[in-house]
Design a binder for these strands. Structure first.
Lengths: 121, 121
DNA sequence: GGCCTTCTCAACCGAATGGTTGACAAAGGC
DNA sequence: GCCTTTGTCAACCATTCGGTTGAGAAGGCC
Protein backbone atom coordinates (compact mmCIF):
# COMPACT_ATOMS: atom_id res chain seq x y z
CA UNK A 1 0.00 0.00 0.00
CA UNK A 2 2.67 2.61 0.77
CA UNK A 3 4.08 4.04 -2.41
CA UNK A 4 7.82 3.72 -1.90
CA UNK A 5 9.48 1.09 -4.04
CA UNK A 6 11.03 -0.94 -1.24
CA UNK A 7 7.59 -1.41 0.31
CA UNK A 8 6.14 -2.41 -3.03
CA UNK A 9 8.88 -4.96 -3.66
CA UNK A 10 8.46 -6.55 -0.23
CA UNK A 11 4.68 -6.53 -0.57
CA UNK A 12 4.88 -8.06 -4.05
CA UNK A 13 6.98 -10.95 -2.76
CA UNK A 14 4.75 -11.51 0.28
CA UNK A 15 2.45 -13.64 -1.90
CA UNK A 16 3.45 -17.27 -2.61
CA UNK A 17 1.87 -17.24 -6.07
CA UNK A 18 3.83 -14.15 -7.01
CA UNK A 19 7.05 -15.60 -5.63
CA UNK A 20 6.36 -18.69 -7.70
CA UNK A 21 5.84 -16.56 -10.79
CA UNK A 22 9.14 -14.83 -10.13
CA UNK A 23 10.75 -18.25 -9.84
CA UNK A 24 9.39 -19.33 -13.19
CA UNK A 25 10.39 -16.06 -14.84
CA UNK A 26 13.93 -16.54 -13.58
CA UNK A 27 14.09 -19.61 -15.81
CA UNK A 28 12.87 -17.69 -18.82
CA UNK A 29 10.37 -15.16 -20.14
CA UNK A 30 6.76 -16.29 -20.45
CA UNK A 31 3.34 -15.05 -21.54
CA UNK A 32 0.46 -14.41 -19.17
CA UNK A 33 -1.29 -17.57 -20.32
CA UNK A 34 1.78 -19.71 -19.80
CA UNK A 35 2.26 -18.25 -16.36
CA UNK A 36 -1.40 -18.77 -15.45
CA UNK A 37 -1.59 -22.40 -16.60
CA UNK A 38 -0.23 -24.11 -13.46
CA UNK A 39 -2.52 -22.28 -11.05
CA UNK A 40 -6.12 -22.91 -10.22
CA UNK A 41 -7.13 -19.29 -10.73
CA UNK A 42 -8.39 -17.26 -13.67
CA UNK A 43 -6.07 -15.56 -16.14
CA UNK A 44 -7.36 -12.24 -14.84
CA UNK A 45 -6.09 -13.00 -11.36
CA UNK A 46 -2.62 -13.80 -12.71
CA UNK A 47 -2.74 -10.65 -14.80
CA UNK A 48 -3.36 -8.73 -11.58
CA UNK A 49 -0.42 -10.43 -9.89
CA UNK A 50 1.78 -9.46 -12.81
CA UNK A 51 0.62 -5.89 -12.47
CA UNK A 52 1.71 -5.88 -8.84
CA UNK A 53 5.10 -7.31 -9.81
CA UNK A 54 5.39 -4.74 -12.57
CA UNK A 55 4.54 -1.84 -10.26
CA UNK A 56 7.25 -3.09 -7.93
CA UNK A 57 9.70 -3.01 -10.84
CA UNK A 58 10.30 -6.76 -10.65
CA UNK A 59 8.76 -7.55 -14.03
CA UNK A 60 8.51 -5.80 -17.37
CA UNK A 61 6.01 -6.62 -20.09
CA UNK A 62 6.70 -6.20 -23.77
CA UNK A 63 4.44 -6.89 -26.72
CA UNK A 64 4.26 -9.72 -29.27
CA UNK A 65 0.99 -9.61 -31.22
CA UNK A 66 -1.79 -10.47 -28.74
CA UNK A 67 0.73 -11.96 -26.36
CA UNK A 68 2.53 -10.01 -23.61
CA UNK A 69 5.77 -11.73 -22.72
CA UNK A 70 6.90 -11.04 -19.18
CA UNK A 71 10.51 -10.55 -18.26
CA UNK A 72 12.14 -10.62 -14.82
CA UNK A 73 14.06 -7.49 -13.82
CA UNK A 74 16.51 -8.94 -11.36
CA UNK A 75 18.26 -5.69 -10.48
CA UNK A 76 15.47 -4.67 -8.11
CA UNK A 77 16.53 -7.50 -5.83
CA UNK A 78 19.59 -5.41 -5.01
CA UNK A 79 17.36 -2.86 -3.31
CA UNK A 80 16.15 -5.49 -0.89
CA UNK A 81 19.46 -7.21 -0.29
CA UNK A 82 21.06 -3.86 0.47
CA UNK A 83 18.39 -3.03 3.02
CA UNK A 84 18.59 -6.45 4.60
CA UNK A 85 22.37 -6.60 4.70
CA UNK A 86 22.51 -3.28 6.46
CA UNK A 87 20.53 -4.51 9.44
CA UNK A 88 22.08 -7.93 9.40
CA UNK A 89 25.46 -6.24 9.69
CA UNK A 90 24.25 -3.81 12.37
CA UNK A 91 22.74 -6.62 14.40
CA UNK A 92 25.96 -8.60 14.14
CA UNK A 93 28.11 -5.67 15.19
CA UNK A 94 25.78 -5.06 18.08
CA UNK A 95 26.17 -8.65 19.12
CA UNK A 96 29.92 -8.31 19.12
CA UNK A 97 29.70 -5.08 21.12
CA UNK A 98 27.43 -6.85 23.59
CA UNK A 99 29.91 -9.66 23.95
CA UNK A 100 32.66 -7.12 24.57
CA UNK A 101 30.60 -5.33 27.21
CA UNK A 102 29.73 -8.57 28.93
CA UNK A 103 33.36 -9.59 28.93
CA UNK A 104 34.32 -6.24 30.45
CA UNK A 105 31.59 -6.50 33.09
CA UNK A 106 32.89 -9.90 34.04
CA UNK A 107 36.42 -8.48 34.42
CA UNK A 108 35.17 -5.62 36.59
CA UNK A 109 33.21 -8.03 38.70
CA UNK A 110 36.24 -10.13 39.31
CA UNK A 111 38.28 -7.07 40.25
CA UNK A 112 35.59 -6.00 42.72
CA UNK A 113 34.43 -9.30 44.15
CA UNK A 114 37.70 -11.12 44.37
CA UNK A 115 39.25 -8.92 47.09
CA UNK A 116 35.91 -8.18 48.84
CA UNK A 117 34.94 -11.80 48.92
CA UNK A 118 38.26 -12.73 50.35
CA UNK A 119 38.05 -10.00 53.04
CA UNK A 120 34.38 -10.48 53.97
CA UNK A 121 34.26 -14.21 54.51
CA UNK B 1 -2.11 -13.29 4.89
CA UNK B 2 -0.66 -16.66 3.75
CA UNK B 3 0.66 -18.58 6.71
CA UNK B 4 4.11 -19.66 5.52
CA UNK B 5 6.99 -17.91 7.21
CA UNK B 6 8.62 -16.48 4.10
CA UNK B 7 5.37 -14.72 3.21
CA UNK B 8 5.03 -13.41 6.73
CA UNK B 9 8.56 -12.03 6.73
CA UNK B 10 8.12 -10.27 3.39
CA UNK B 11 4.71 -8.93 4.43
CA UNK B 12 6.09 -7.70 7.75
CA UNK B 13 8.82 -5.72 6.00
CA UNK B 14 6.42 -4.28 3.41
CA UNK B 15 5.49 -1.54 5.89
CA UNK B 16 7.83 1.46 6.31
CA UNK B 17 7.02 1.86 10.01
CA UNK B 18 7.87 -1.76 10.65
CA UNK B 19 11.10 -1.52 8.64
CA UNK B 20 11.96 1.53 10.70
CA UNK B 21 11.28 -0.38 13.92
CA UNK B 22 13.56 -3.16 12.71
CA UNK B 23 16.21 -0.54 12.01
CA UNK B 24 15.96 0.82 15.54
CA UNK B 25 16.00 -2.65 17.06
CA UNK B 26 19.18 -3.42 15.15
CA UNK B 27 20.83 -0.69 17.23
CA UNK B 28 19.56 -2.18 20.46
CA UNK B 29 16.62 -3.71 22.31
CA UNK B 30 13.78 -1.37 23.26
CA UNK B 31 10.42 -1.36 25.01
CA UNK B 32 7.12 -0.83 23.24
CA UNK B 33 6.85 2.69 24.62
CA UNK B 34 10.33 3.62 23.49
CA UNK B 35 9.64 2.26 20.04
CA UNK B 36 6.31 4.07 19.80
CA UNK B 37 7.64 7.48 20.87
CA UNK B 38 8.95 8.74 17.49
CA UNK B 39 5.75 7.95 15.59
CA UNK B 40 2.53 9.88 15.44
CA UNK B 41 0.41 6.82 16.23
CA UNK B 42 -0.90 5.26 19.42
CA UNK B 43 1.05 2.74 21.44
CA UNK B 44 -1.58 0.17 20.48
CA UNK B 45 -0.77 0.56 16.81
CA UNK B 46 2.93 -0.01 17.47
CA UNK B 47 2.04 -2.99 19.64
CA UNK B 48 0.20 -4.42 16.64
CA UNK B 49 3.21 -3.82 14.39
CA UNK B 50 5.39 -5.62 16.88
CA UNK B 51 2.99 -8.54 16.89
CA UNK B 52 3.31 -8.79 13.11
CA UNK B 53 7.09 -8.70 13.37
CA UNK B 54 6.95 -11.30 16.13
CA UNK B 55 4.70 -13.62 14.10
CA UNK B 56 7.21 -13.33 11.27
CA UNK B 57 9.95 -14.41 13.68
CA UNK B 58 11.81 -11.13 13.26
CA UNK B 59 11.30 -9.96 16.83
CA UNK B 60 11.05 -11.65 20.21
CA UNK B 61 9.55 -10.10 23.31
CA UNK B 62 10.69 -10.89 26.82
CA UNK B 63 9.39 -9.55 30.11
CA UNK B 64 10.72 -6.97 32.55
CA UNK B 65 8.02 -6.01 35.08
CA UNK B 66 5.35 -4.09 33.12
CA UNK B 67 7.77 -3.48 30.28
CA UNK B 68 8.22 -5.82 27.33
CA UNK B 69 11.66 -5.38 25.80
CA UNK B 70 11.81 -6.25 22.12
CA UNK B 71 14.76 -7.98 20.56
CA UNK B 72 15.64 -8.35 16.89
CA UNK B 73 16.10 -11.91 15.66
CA UNK B 74 18.40 -11.33 12.74
CA UNK B 75 18.67 -14.97 11.66
CA UNK B 76 15.32 -14.83 9.89
CA UNK B 77 16.88 -12.49 7.34
CA UNK B 78 18.77 -15.53 6.05
CA UNK B 79 15.49 -17.03 4.88
CA UNK B 80 14.88 -14.06 2.61
CA UNK B 81 18.42 -13.63 1.37
CA UNK B 82 18.53 -17.31 0.47
CA UNK B 83 15.32 -17.03 -1.52
CA UNK B 84 16.44 -13.84 -3.23
CA UNK B 85 19.93 -15.07 -4.04
CA UNK B 86 18.55 -18.17 -5.66
CA UNK B 87 16.63 -16.21 -8.27
CA UNK B 88 19.28 -13.56 -8.63
CA UNK B 89 21.70 -16.34 -9.49
CA UNK B 90 19.24 -18.08 -11.81
CA UNK B 91 18.48 -14.84 -13.62
CA UNK B 92 22.17 -14.14 -14.02
CA UNK B 93 22.91 -17.60 -15.36
CA UNK B 94 20.03 -17.24 -17.76
CA UNK B 95 21.46 -13.98 -18.94
CA UNK B 96 24.77 -15.63 -19.64
CA UNK B 97 23.07 -18.51 -21.48
CA UNK B 98 21.14 -15.95 -23.52
CA UNK B 99 24.36 -14.19 -24.41
CA UNK B 100 25.85 -17.52 -25.47
CA UNK B 101 22.83 -18.35 -27.62
CA UNK B 102 22.88 -14.94 -29.23
CA UNK B 103 26.57 -15.29 -29.95
CA UNK B 104 25.98 -18.70 -31.53
CA UNK B 105 23.09 -17.37 -33.62
CA UNK B 106 25.32 -14.62 -34.88
CA UNK B 107 27.94 -17.17 -35.86
CA UNK B 108 25.38 -19.29 -37.71
CA UNK B 109 24.07 -16.23 -39.46
CA UNK B 110 27.49 -15.30 -40.65
CA UNK B 111 28.10 -18.84 -41.95
CA UNK B 112 24.82 -18.67 -43.90
CA UNK B 113 24.77 -15.06 -45.09
CA UNK B 114 28.38 -14.52 -45.88
CA UNK B 115 28.52 -16.84 -48.92
CA UNK B 116 24.92 -16.08 -50.05
CA UNK B 117 25.41 -12.38 -49.82
CA UNK B 118 28.54 -12.55 -51.88
CA UNK B 119 26.81 -14.72 -54.55
CA UNK B 120 23.46 -12.83 -54.68
CA UNK B 121 24.71 -9.29 -55.10
C1' DG C 1 -4.53 -0.81 49.78
C1' DG C 2 -4.71 2.90 46.13
C1' DC C 3 -2.48 4.93 42.06
C1' DC C 4 0.30 5.31 38.04
C1' DT C 5 2.79 3.23 34.25
C1' DT C 6 3.15 -0.09 30.58
C1' DC C 7 1.12 -2.82 27.55
C1' DT C 8 -2.46 -5.96 25.38
C1' DC C 9 -7.21 -7.26 24.04
C1' DA C 10 -11.62 -6.24 21.70
C1' DA C 11 -14.55 -3.85 18.75
C1' DC C 12 -14.94 -0.89 15.21
C1' DC C 13 -13.80 1.78 10.68
C1' DG C 14 -12.10 2.88 6.02
C1' DA C 15 -9.02 1.37 2.58
C1' DA C 16 -6.53 -2.13 0.17
C1' DT C 17 -6.06 -7.13 -1.41
C1' DG C 18 -7.04 -11.38 -3.92
C1' DG C 19 -10.35 -13.42 -6.05
C1' DT C 20 -14.53 -13.77 -9.18
C1' DT C 21 -17.59 -12.79 -13.54
C1' DG C 22 -18.62 -10.17 -17.75
C1' DA C 23 -17.43 -7.14 -21.47
C1' DC C 24 -14.24 -5.76 -24.80
C1' DA C 25 -9.81 -4.53 -27.32
C1' DA C 26 -6.18 -6.36 -30.36
C1' DA C 27 -4.33 -9.40 -33.55
C1' DG C 28 -3.93 -13.80 -36.28
C1' DG C 29 -6.18 -17.90 -38.75
C1' DC C 30 -9.75 -19.35 -41.92
C1' DG D 1 -15.10 -10.41 -43.22
C1' DC D 2 -15.87 -13.60 -39.24
C1' DC D 3 -14.11 -16.37 -35.33
C1' DT D 4 -10.66 -17.64 -31.95
C1' DT D 5 -6.89 -16.55 -29.04
C1' DT D 6 -4.75 -13.59 -25.65
C1' DG D 7 -5.05 -10.35 -22.45
C1' DT D 8 -6.91 -6.14 -19.95
C1' DC D 9 -10.57 -3.26 -17.76
C1' DA D 10 -14.51 -2.70 -14.63
C1' DA D 11 -17.51 -3.93 -11.12
C1' DC D 12 -18.28 -6.58 -7.37
C1' DC D 13 -17.35 -9.51 -3.01
C1' DA D 14 -15.11 -11.30 1.21
C1' DT D 15 -11.12 -10.77 3.84
C1' DT D 16 -7.16 -8.43 5.72
C1' DC D 17 -4.74 -4.34 7.27
C1' DG D 18 -3.45 -0.19 9.71
C1' DG D 19 -5.39 2.76 12.44
C1' DT D 20 -8.58 4.40 16.25
C1' DT D 21 -10.99 4.32 21.04
C1' DG D 22 -12.12 2.06 25.35
C1' DA D 23 -11.40 -1.31 28.84
C1' DG D 24 -8.55 -4.00 31.60
C1' DA D 25 -4.42 -6.92 33.16
C1' DA D 26 0.14 -6.75 35.41
C1' DG D 27 3.40 -4.86 38.12
C1' DG D 28 6.11 -1.22 40.62
C1' DC D 29 5.64 3.13 43.89
C1' DC D 30 3.77 5.63 48.02
Amino acid sequence: MPDDQLSRVFAALADPTRRDIVGRLAVGDATVGQLAAPYDVTVQAVSKHLRVLEDAGLVSRTRDAQRRPCHLEAEVFDLMTKWIERYQRQAEERYQRLDAVLARLQDDEQQQTDPDEGAAS
